[in-house]
């Protein structure tokens, strides 16, 4: 994301990071739902549910010094020092969201099913610990958040159009 992108276009970029994060979250949910009965994976053992985490995207303020601040030969070597980039430009203060997924560490559920090919000697099968209802709730939440980001983009579009009419 470039710092040169001004005002409303930066808003659209931020909302698009939100859209991307929610869409990827939807993919993860779909993966969890598709694997509710998967007992064999490449890593061995049953499928482990993926959990989505969101992070605030924040660019390093020092990487984008405002115009003019660059010439100040100030070195901040201690916490109390005044930094040369006194004023952080707005565009670096917000830059959206990013997400990643981690594996659930919960122990798999043990279901008694002696006829299952992956059953152990006692007849128990290690099944993924996935609650379909929890996934459904996550799905609705992702869908709602996606819509909220779409609304924000649409508003930015309309505002940009109105500004062009001046």
């Amino acid at each position: 994301m470039s710092d040169k992108i001004s005002g409303l276009f930066a808003s659209m970029k931020i909302s698009s990071t939100g859209l991307a994060a929610q869409r990827r979250r939807m993919n993860i949910i779909a993966e969890n739902l598709a694997n509710t009965n998967t007992t064999k994976t490449d890593e061995g053992g049953p499928y482990k549910r993926k959990i989505v985490r969101f992070y605030e995207l924040m660019k390093k303020a020092t990487a984008h010094k405002p115009v003019g601040a660059r010439d100040l030969p100030l070195a901040a070597t201690a916490r109390g020092h005044i930094h040369s980039d006194l004023e952080i430009p707005y565009s670096t203060k917000f830059s959206g969201v990013r997400m990643d997924a981690v594996r659930d560490t919960a122990e798999p559920e043990r279901v008694y099913d002696p006829t299952h090919p992956d059953a152990d000697e006692f007849g128990y099968v290690a099944m993924p610990k996935i609650d379909v209802i929890v996934e459904m709730v996550e799905m609705i939440s992702a869908s709602r958040s996606y819509e909220a980001n779409v609304s924000a983009i649409n508003a930015a579009k309309d505002m940009a159009r109105k500004a062009l009419e001046i």
């Binding site: 005002g7 409303l8 930066a10 808003s11 659209m12 931020i14 909302s15 990071t17 939100g18 994060a21 985490r53 969101f54 992070y55 605030e56 707005y90 917000f94 830059s95 959206g96 969201v97 939440s141 958040s145 909220a148 980001n149 609304s151 924000a152 508003a155 930015a156 505002m159 500004a163």
Partner: peptide, 21 residues
């Protein structure tokens, strides 16, 4: 107009991060 555009950006960021811990 500048202030409203900036506020829109802040709100967009809040919405994008509505589920960030």
């Amino acid at each position: 107009l500048d202030a409203y555009a900036l506020r829109h950006r802040a709100i967009s960021d809040n919405i994008a991060n509505s589920e960030t811990v």
